[in-house]
Amino acid sequence: MMSPTHVATGLAVAAAVAAVDPALVTAAAAGGVLGGVFPDLDLFAGEHRKTLHFPVLGWIPVLVAVPLALVAPGPATVGLAVACLTAATHAASDVLGAGEELRPWERTNPNAVYCHACGRWLRARYVIRYDGAPEDLLLTVLLTAPALVVFEGPVRLVALGTIAVGVVYAAVRKRVVRYFEPIVD
C-alpha cells in the first residue's frame, strides 16, 4: 500500500481518540501520521519492508503503549500509543498488497513484508494489487473520511493533503517507474 493509505489509517485512529478526548487531537493526529510514515523510512535506511517493518513484533510496543495511554492519558502517551498502533498496522497490512518490487503489477516477486519473528518473507496477498492502485486510493479516501468529519484546522488540512498526495501518486504510479529503474538496477 502507498504511504498516504498508512497515514490515513493513523488519522482514522486519531479520529477515534478525538471522539473520546478532544483535548488530545493534535497528539493523536501527530502520532498517527508519524506511525503511518515511519516504517517506510526503510526505503532510505536499509531494505524496504524489512528494516523498519515488523508485522508481528511491532505489536509488542502496542501492548505497552496503549495500556499506558489508558492509565495515564496525556499528549505524550496518547501520541506514542497511536504512533505504535499505526506503525504496527502499517507493517501488518503490507502483506495485503503486492510483492516488494518496482513493478508490482507484474507479480515477479511474492515477498510482501519480512517477518522477523518467523525469519522469512510473508507472501503478498494482492488484495490491493499494487501501491497506488485504484483500490489503494479508494482505501485512502475511506480511511481519511473520519478525520475530515472530526477534525478542523491543521489536522483537516493534513487529511486533505493525504488524499491529494494519494491522488497524484495513483495517477503517476505506473508511469514514473522508468525513471527509478536506472537507480535501482
Rank of each mutant, 00 (worst) to 15 (best):
M1P: 13
M1N: 02
M2A: 04
P4N: 13
T5D: 07
T9E: 01
G10E: 12
A12T: 13
A12V: 10
A12C: 14
V13R: 03
V13Q: 04
A18K: 04
A19D: 12
D21T: 14
D21H: 09
L24A: 09
T26S: 13
A28S: 10
A30M: 12
A30E: 00
A30Y: 01
G32Q: 09
L34E: 00
G36I: 14
V37E: 01
F38I: 14
P39H: 06
L43D: 03
L43S: 11
R49Y: 05
P55F: 10
V56Q: 11
W59S: 05
V62E: 12
V62N: 02
V64I: 15
A65L: 15
V66G: 07
L68E: 00
L70D: 03
A72I: 08
P73E: 04
T77M: 10
V78P: 06
V78S: 06
G79K: 06
L80I: 12
C84N: 03
L85M: 13
H90I: 09
A91N: 05
A92G: 01
S93D: 00
V95W: 00
V95Y: 00
G97W: 01
P104E: 04
P104Y: 08
R107A: 14
N109S: 01
N109E: 08
P110Y: 07
N111Q: 10
A112S: 00
H116E: 03
H116I: 06
A117S: 12
A117Q: 07
C118W: 11
C118Y: 11
G119Y: 12
G119S: 06
R123M: 04
R125A: 15
R125W: 14
I128A: 03
D131V: 03
D131W: 12
A133K: 08
L138F: 13
L138R: 09
T140Q: 08
L142K: 01
A145L: 15
A147Y: 03
A147N: 07
L148I: 07
V149M: 05
P154H: 08
P154Y: 09
L160H: 10
T162K: 04
I163W: 07
V165N: 00
G166D: 03
V168E: 02
A171K: 05
V172H: 02
R173K: 14
V176A: 05
V176M: 11
V176F: 13
V177C: 01
F180D: 00
F180R: 03
I183Q: 02
